[in-house]
Design a protein around this nucleic acid. Structure first.
Lengths: 341, 341
DNA sequence: TTGTAGGCGTTATCAG
DNA sequence: CTGATAACGCCTACAA
């Protein structure tokens, strides 16, 4: 269909060419492209005509080289593809981010930094392709990302474990969330309560466990029924099996994410334990997985989509030069009662 | 932690600065950065030292402006975030793409072009930020994307409906796949067979339906039990309800995707129809959803992950100047028997 | 309101 | 092997 087909793409039109076509200077074309008000109507019309005729689109590299801004931000996810696509939590966050970005001129570059989040990602962030970055699912040890913050503004989703005053993040109070879940189990009469935790190199993992421990301590109950997983279904399945082997009389279970809770549910079924009769289960997130689960999950709701929106909003304000953005942005959680507990 | 904190980021080091630090010319630094062999060992060492000392990272905009290549490709997905994250099929494709890209120097820019895939996305592709693009889940009417192919090489995942000789794509034979599924249902004794189709503005939707019709015709069975959905669970649930209302004696069902099949399964359960005893169900994709489904799905396997890999591979070869890449790349499907039929 | 000219950080083409 | 010296396409004072 195109003359010549593949291998002979037409050279992209440039400002220069548009200028010639419209009989004006490059500067003038640049002005109309960037919506400057100081352009006479006739010239504006002529230039727009030339742009349309040549089908001109500004070259982004040249533009950002000259203006020192890219109009793009990166979303860094130090997880492998499977994890990223497997957990609805991420979908919600991304949803919120794109919602905010759609209201702006910014473009999103998704970096699923599967292996080695360090070197490659940091180089990317420092290479000037993006004006700022959003980092979610940050693990302890990914310090290079924090280092990258020296080059470009970064907003974290989830409190970085090594929190310093410089980091900006949005999160929920995971300790409180863990307590809410645990207290509910206790209040409904459970006594032998356990928990499947998230990875302990993430603040969400550590804090939710911490909340569990505190509530158990307050109630004078033992907090030894703890098994660690990695926010994946497979990990949760394995952890739940270990836990049931070790604590056969378990009657309550707080699982640190809804996705993992679905895994726990399947193990409980395979072991013939009725939910919630024999074992009450409380999840965390209130993601779609909670409702579509075989047994709808009682869970600690967190406003994931809003958190994504907020992250993007903070970054955009930061990029706009707003120095008043608050560094700790804590959003509320609440218990949602369904069938599992 | 950083002197000055936010708002006072240090200017990024440039080639120029490295050159000065190492007492050589910019050209020489450029050579070592790009791994040119024609550099003396001493100079190389000196330059590398300077690079390390200054923590230099090349500016991507400048580089691509000068070299007219970006080392990045885009993955365009004309679907909203929910759909994209909701269907494991996409996860598999992305997985395959990143696997191929990890073997190369190319970076992936994910464009979930939610609303208006046209204008914004095309501008992006034409703005020179990527060397090429991968397009999946292409709908009829997204012709602007095809147009964009005039500016940058594009490889499609799934045959574009308006196939012309220029388009390069990888796909399976969906007609054949639809026939395989339908024939299996017929072979196992089903006679009142229906189908839940994908969207009819996508070749995958149309072709699988076509396969169904052909097989039914060959068997001399009626092909009126057809309802259209959109590859989403919600859509499938609604379509299945309509179908059961209209064809109460249904005993076989071919659903155009595994994700939709899970929706169909839930409707069948809600209507008290046993699977596969009362109604046999065959899906399509063989995605993780097929196995984790309440009733493991009998389904038409397609090598999604491989298809992603192949797409990326074709594009990379294209970008490398390989003019011998084949335009129609059809991969095999096969029936996988599980519990649902 | 419009044009001129210099520069953004690299790559690439030449001489040396 | 190394160093000038143009581009690359666009933005932005500064002039006119």
């Amino acid at each position: 269909m195109h003359a010549g087909g593949i291998g002979s793409r037409p050279a992209a039109p440039t400002l220069e060419m548009v200028a010639r076509e419209a009989n004006v200077s490059r500067a003038t074309v640049s002005r109309v492209v960037n919506g400057s008000p100081k352009v006479s109507p006739e010239v504006l019309a002529a230039v727009n005509a030339a742009i349309a005729k040549l089908n001109y689109v500004p070259n982004r590299a040249a533009r950002s080289l000259a203006s020192r801004t890219t109009n793009a931000i990166a979303l860094v996810v130090p997880e492998d593809t499977t994890r990223f696509f497997g957990d609805p939590y991420f979908a919600a966050i991304v949803q919120g981010i794109t919602r905010r970005l759609d209201e702006s001129e910014y473009l999103l570059n998704l970096l699923i930094s599967t292996s080695d989040p360090n070197r490659k990602t940091v180089r990317y962030l420092r290479s000037g392709v993006v004006d700022g970055a959003l980092v979610i699912s940050h693990h302890e040890g990914d310090d290079s990302l924090v280092e990258a913050a020296g080059s470009v503004p970064i907003v974290f989703g989830g409190r970085p474990e090594r929190e310093s005053d410089d980091e900006i993040f949005v999160d929920v109070d995971n300790v409180e969330g863990g307590m809410t879940a645990t207290e509910y189990l206790i209040a409904t009469g459970r006594r032998r309560i356990g928990t499947i935790t998230g990875p302990l190199d993430m603040s969400a993992g550590v804090d939710r466990l911490d909340g569990f421990r505190r509530s158990m301590a307050v109630a004078g109950l033992p907090d030894d029924a703890v098994e660690t997983a990695d926010f994946s279904v497979a990990g949760s399945v394995a952890a739940t099996r270990r836990l049931l082997d070790r604590v056969p009389d378990l009657d309550g279970l707080f699982v640190a994410s809804d996705l993992m809770a679905t895994g726990a549910l399947s193990v409980l079924r395979e072991r013939g334990r009725r939910v919630p009769d024999d074992v009450a289960v409380v999840g965390f997130d209130d993601s779609p997985a909670a409702m579509s689960s075989a047994i709808p999950l009682t869970t600690v709701h967190q406003p994931s989509e809003e958190m994504g929106y907020e992250m993007a909003d903070l970054l955009i304000r930061l990029l706009a030069g707003d120095t008043t953005v608050s560094h700790r942005n804590i959003m509320p959680t609440r218990l949602v009662r369904r069938a599992s507990a």
